[in-house]
Nucleic acid binder design. Structure first.
Lengths: 236, 236
DNA sequence: CGTCAGTTTGAAGCGAATCAAGAACAGTGG
DNA sequence: CCACTGTTCTTGATTCGCTTCAAACTGACG
């Protein structure tokens, strides 16, 4: 396990925001300063339960989180994934509540940014870039929800997986965490199944199929996309 | 086909909002006055394409609308349904765009409420009930997206259908459009299939199954729920 | 009365779930 | 350093839910 300085960890947030909008020096400064209070959590730690008021937005500095809904009999559906550089548990709507339980899917480090979010909101004119970034982040989260509906509702297993991989690849690209033609995949196949609405076994077989078709290559827990065009053709 | 006065049609909106929050007399007045400019659309009319800026929020006065995503090969997924009394194409987020194509699923009448929405937003202090109502409507729309993900991802056909029926029943209850133990279902089984991620044929068979199990009763296009508890037990 | 959209029914096939068991792997303590 | 443990991944066999295809039926409407 590597040890990172606070600045190194915060870099992924700045990278991500700068991919979305232009930040003034003052804004960059403000953000960096806000990433100080970091909290580290174990895998499976629940940050917030369903329906909790969204009062503690955070940026993910490392690790992956997810929003989860569990049915009475234990079936799980992951609603959305949060990667390093992502904003978690934020809504511009006053009084908004968590639409699912926020869970650490890996060991994760977050920075609480309640005050930063409040400032982006109330002093929007003074920090236009920051305000725009928060708006875009919120919008993208909603787009991901829609993508989940379409995936789960109308795509075959292969298409779902390919679509998710493509989305994750692009998100890593934006956050500057892409490595070569790929990224690090820390999720278990079971978690992927709960994301895609597939059984663990079928996730495994689907991945093998994609590898056979040269759509995906894995080196340890690094996933690589040899040919984006091919990936797009498999995805629906 | 019955002809309704503007006031009669607008009643469903007031009923809905009053179920969500308390409105002052001034607010009630303001809303009623805003429902004047109504537009009537044919089945399959597209109000807005995907990605269009959400600049024209409307209330549904009669008929059902839906947001639709279409894959290249023609597969459709309906993201959300909009019933009489519902707010369509609204987002409090400036610059938000349509997450799907807005389609009339039946003949529909809508009232444009762009100015009302703007006022609820900018004069929130002056119209607290109205502002709260808009916030709640937006929140409920998001909850419905999440429900769609869980349905499509982790529920069996019967559970999906039962869950949707229950949700629709409650929404009719809120809007005051419940009729006895049921409501009017104007959608075709094909449209229901595109909502639930099922084939038309299987929608048909699933409905028959629910009827056999006394979960659902249909009289013409009226759907009735003899026993809500039983419905809940089928839904996951 | 014929047309067309929507519903219903049957038969066959496929995709994914399930069940079960083994292999690879990481972490742990002796 | 290696045996032990538990988690994750992998594989095969079987079952089942749903889709697909095709055709008949129903009802509204011109």
């Amino acid at each position: 396990m590597s040890t990172l300085t606070s600045a190194q960890r915060g870099a992924v947030v700045l990278r991500h925001l700068q991919a979305l909008t232009t930040l003034s020096a003052a804004e960059t400064e403000l953000i960096s300063g806000s990433l100080g209070r970091t909290v580290s959590h174990e895998t499976n730690h629940e940050l917030m339960a369903v329906d909790t008021p969204l009062e503690h937005p955070r940026f993910v500095l490392s690790g992956w989180l997810g929003t989860v809904r569990t049915l009475r009999d234990g079936r799980r559906q992951i609603l959305d994934l949060y990667l390093p550089g992502d904003l978690v548990g934020y809504s511009s709507r006053p009084g908004a509540r968590a639409k699912g339980s926020f869970l650490c899917l890996t060991h994760a480090v977050c920075a609480e940014v309640g005050d930063l979010a409040a400032r982006a909101h109330t002093h929007a004119a003074q920090f236009p870039g920051l305000a725009a970034a928060f708006r875009t982040l919120e919008d993208e989260a909603e787009q991901r929800l829609v993508a989940q509906i379409v995936r789960n509702g109308r795509m075959m297993a292969q298409e779902r997986m390919a679509d998710l991989i493509w989305s994750l690849y692009q998100r890593h690209e934006m956050a500057g965490t892409r490595i070569g033609q790929g990224f690090v995949m820390p999720l278990t196949q079971e978690t992927l199944g709960d994301t895609l609405g597939l059984s663990t076994v079928h996730v495994n077989r689907t991945l093998q199929q994609l590898k056979r078709e040269q759509v995906l290559r894995t080196v340890g827990n690094r996933w690589e996309i040899p040919d984006p065009a091919r990936l797009a053709s498999v995805s629906a």
